[in-house]
Amino acid sequence: MSNYAADESRLQTLATGSDSAWRVLYDDLRSPFRLFFLKHTNWPPEQVSALYQDAMVVLHRKVTTGSLAAPLRSSLRTYLFGVGKMIYRKQGGAKTQWEEEVPEVAIPPGVEDRIAQREQAAWIRNLLNRMDEKCRNILRKVYLHSYSMEAIAEDLGLSGAGAARKRKYDCLQRMRKLISIEEN
């Protein structure tokens, strides 16, 4: 029996990307997270609020892509603090003594660099705009809304997850071709 059964059950709902479930989690953890970082760091309230949002986005990515799944080794709250701690460090936060045990959580590269992030987002948006509606739709569903292949197959009336997966990679290849055209 896991020590975090309630969190694991919550994780299942969150993994579907349900906006309402994420809203509840956002509201539940906001105050504890803010208090923790306002207590242990020198960052002012506005910066800590921004940190919370960044940490939540990373958590969202990890949960909806399945890279954070049961069995959990810490509560979701502690895990989120761990994400916050890593972003804090990457963004140049001063060394600090954390009272509680906060895990080291790997976070995707570039989270701390907002300018690079904006540029990359604009680039992929531009590529998407040059693609046909079907590919745009399937790629957005996969990479932004974390739909499962089964859900995509159902959504697009395809025969099954295998067909959806093939369609996804075909679209990704088309996107790759657009980059080649751009480079030439």
């Binding site: 949002q53 960044d54 986005v57 990515r61 690079a116 992030q117 990359q120 990479y143 932004l144 980059i179």
Partner: peptide, 26 residues
């Protein structure tokens, strides 16, 4: 290298779009 670049850019777009949602919740 190119595909990794593409996936990183997808992550950046996700970060931005989901960030807007959380900012609204805030």
């Amino acid at each position: 290298r190119t595909f990794n670049q593409l996936w990183n850019a997808w992550d950046a777009l996700h970060f931005q779009e989901q960030g807007v949602k959380f900012a609204e919740m805030d």
